[in-house]
């Protein structure tokens, strides 16, 4: 025998199940009067700095069917590339931008949608700059542990080409699965980020 290390084990994950929204978006599933508003619906206010964008997309399973019961969370830096978090030591982030969002996929179309701002660039641990990106986390029935990926902006070609995280993806043909394509809606830039859980176009997921 040797001395015991004092670490605990992380609690094992379990699927969020089909009714995750009861806990995360009760008003959205018509459980009203319990709390005023569901958390994470609104990211941007009139004072928030940065370029307004819309991020949207759908999630597809291995048969090509759209998930209509998933929950999507995003986390991102402000327009200057600072996170609104106590762990951010490089400066003070925009106080009018929390950077965290949470949306259910639409029960009919399966689309998720966030109105947010374009994030600035954040350094990698060695100081090289990562390309602008949004962290995306999805849970749903049938997903045993939350899936973690990143949305990158397809029109940021130069920044994407030098991003140290994208550079770690050995199979370059998979990099386009992380690229949101730019369009326009009501005069706002719109980025579409579809997520594929399996198949030819399977999205790159990260073990972070």
């Amino acid at each position: 025998m040797v001395q015991k290390l004092d670490f605990l084990k992380e609690t094992p994950s379990q699927t969020a199940g089909p009714y995750v929204h009861i806990g995360t978006n009760p008003n959205w599933v018509e459980i009203t009067g319990v709390w005023n508003e569901d958390l994470g619906l609104v990211l941007v206010g009139p004072e928030t700095m940065g370029e307004r964008i819309i991020v949207k997309g759908r999630i597809f399973d291995g048969a090509g069917d759209v998930l209509r019961d998933a929950l999507v969370e995003i986390w991102q830096a402000d327009a200057e590339g600072l996170y609104n978090s106590p762990s951010e030591t490089r400066g003070k982030a925009d106080p009018n931008f929390v950077g965290w969002g949470r949306q259910p996929c639409d029960g009919t179309t399966g689309e998720y949608r966030f109105e947010t701002i374009k994030p600035g660039r954040v350094p990698y641990k060695d100081g090289r700059m990562m390309a602008p990106h949004i962290t995306v986390w999805i849970v749903a029935r049938g997903i045993n542990i939350g899936l973690h990926t990143r949305l990158y902006f397809a029109d940021e070609e130069a920044a994407n080409a030098e991003c140290p995280v994208l550079a770690q993806i050995a199979r370059k043909v998979r990099i386009p699965t992380l690229m949101a394509s730019r369009g326009e809606e009501n005069g706002l830039p719109t980025y579409t980020f579809d997520i594929h859980l399996q198949g030819e176009k399977e999205t790159v997921f990260f073990d972070i």
Binding site: E202, V204, F205, F206
Partner: peptide, 12 residues
Amino acid sequence: VLRSPQQPLISL
């Protein structure tokens, strides 16, 4: 079965 990624996760 249809909702599980089949490619290895990219360790980051």
